[in-house]
């Protein structure tokens, strides 16, 4: 059995941010805090320009720097190997914010502790999918055993892209089916 993580089909994503809102709704997040986020990038110059989106959240890395760096053990591996966070142990030191190469953990205002995607472990324990997965209009998000996801969606899935930090840093449990233009080394983030 492989690690558990998200599979993102970039080729199907329309960047609508429904996953972001479903995540906000499920986690009841205030403005400024996103446990799942979408960014749009473009490549090339008119009229040969192109674009792609990425929807990302915690990658539940196998060698998570947030877990390693956490001084209290609040950031830890759950029984299923996903990266979980114990709000009672968290002291809000924000070292995980400095450590995560994907800029995933965020300080929750008012609570003054860290929050991040827990892969909807409560829903999953109850036999459901993470909220973002079931929300996706283009069915481009899936969560599960990466080996099985690879079997189902193709061996050519990647966890390295020019826009992503090197997977060598933390061994992210992430699979992406990239668009061809996402392999181009030159890109610009586009605010939409």
């Amino acid at each position: 059995m492989g690690a558990l993580g998200f599979y993102f089909d970039m080729q199907a994503c329309i960047g609508c941010r429904t996953c972001q809102i479903a995540c906000k709704d499920k986690n009841n997040l205030p403005i400024g805090v996103l446990f799942r986020e979408i960014k749009k990038f473009e490549t090339g110059v008119f009229p040969k320009s192109n674009s792609y989106n990425i929807s990302y959240s915690c990658n539940h890395c196998e060698e998570a720097k947030c877990v390693k760096g956490c001084p209290t053990g609040a950031m830890h591996y759950g029984a299923d190997g996903t990266v979980q966070h114990d709000p009672d142990l968290c002291i809000g030191c924000q070292y995980c914010i400095m450590n995560c190469p994907y800029s995933v953990p965020q300080l929750l205002p008012e609570r003054n502790i860290i929050g991040k995607c827990d892969s909807c472990i409560d829903l999953r324990n109850a036999g459901q999918n993470p909220a973002c997965v079931d929300a996706c209009l283009m069915r481009c998000l899936h969560f599960g055993d990466l080996d099985e996801l690879r079997k189902e969606y193709g061996e050519e899935l990647v966890n390295a892209l020019p826009i992503l930090p090197s997977p060598d840093i933390t061994k992210p449990s992430l699979l992406i089916s990239p668009k061809t233009c996402a392999l181009e080394s030159s890109f610009t983030e586009l605010e939409v």
């Binding site: 877990v67 956490c70 001084p71 209290t72 142990l89 968290c90 002291i91 809000g92 502790i113």
Partner: peptide
């Protein structure tokens, strides 16, 4: 600097793994 100063001593828990600890 901590979000939860009252829980500061929790930071001593992870000497074995955490540089910060």
């Amino acid at each position: 600097h901590l979000g939860q100063p009252m829980k500061a001593f929790f930071a001593l828990y992870q000497f074995s793994s955490s540089l910060l600890s």
